[in-house]
Simulated assay, not measured.
Amino acid sequence: MRNLFLLIILTVFMSCNEDVLPKPKAYLSLTYPKKTYKKLTLKRPYSFEVLENTTVINEANNWLKIKYPNLKASIDITYRPVNNNLKELLTEAEKLVFKHTVKAEQIIPKDFVNPEKRIFGSLYEITGNAASQIQFHITDSTNNFLKGSLYFYAKPNYDSILPAVDYIKQDILHIVETLEWKE
C-alpha cells in the first residue's frame, strides 16, 4: 500500500513539470480568387471595369447591380442625369450615408478628384454593424451622377464581414479609377 501511495505522489510531481500556456488566438484564413477585370459591356452613359467573377444585372434607368454570389453581397449602382440639380443629388447621396449613423461606429470619407477624366466624388467607409459598409458617389459636375452602395445579404456583423468588405473595396476603387463618361 505504501508503494502505491509513493507511486501516485511520484506520478503527480513528474506530470506537473510543464507550464500550461493559453491557446493563441486563431485568425480566420480566407482566400479569394485572383482578380481579373473586364469592361462593362452594357450600353450606359458611363463605363468602367468590373471583376470577372461577378454577375452584372441590368436594371432600368441605367442602374446596375454587381453581385458577388460567393460573398452574398452586391454593389448597387444608381445613375441620374444632372439637370441643374447637382446640389440636390449630392445632398440626397450624403443623407443616405449619414442615415447609417445610428448603427455606425465611424464614417470615414475619402474624396476623388481627377479633372482630366471629369471625375469628382467621395467614398464613405462605414464601420460598425450598419446596413451598408461602403457608399460612394461620382459626378462630372455637369451631366452625370453615379451613386453606389455595398450591401451584404446577411445580418450585419462588421467583424465577420470585414475581410469581404476590404476585398470588395478594392473593386470599388477600381470602378472609380476606370470610370469614363460617354458623350
Rank of each mutant, 00 (worst) to 15 (best):
L30G: 07
L96R: 12
S74C: 01
N58I: 03
S47F: 09
L51A: 10
T78Q: 08
N58Q: 13
V50W: 01
L71Q: 12
E59R: 11
T91Y: 15
T91I: 14
K65C: 03
E88H: 15
K99A: 14
K87R: 15
L42I: 11
N53W: 00
Y32V: 09
L86K: 13
P24C: 07
Y79E: 01
W63I: 00
F48S: 07
L96V: 09
M14H: 01
L10E: 00
V12N: 04
F13G: 09
K23D: 06
T91D: 13
T36C: 03
I66E: 08
D19N: 02
V102L: 14
L10P: 00
K65I: 04
K38E: 08
I75R: 07
E92P: 11
I66S: 07
K87Y: 10
T101N: 10
N84Y: 13
N53P: 05
K35W: 07
I75V: 15
N83T: 15
P33I: 00
K65L: 07
T78P: 01
K87E: 06
P22T: 02
C16I: 03
K38A: 12
K65D: 03
P22Q: 02
E94G: 07
L30F: 15
I77P: 12
K99D: 11
T11Y: 05
V12M: 13
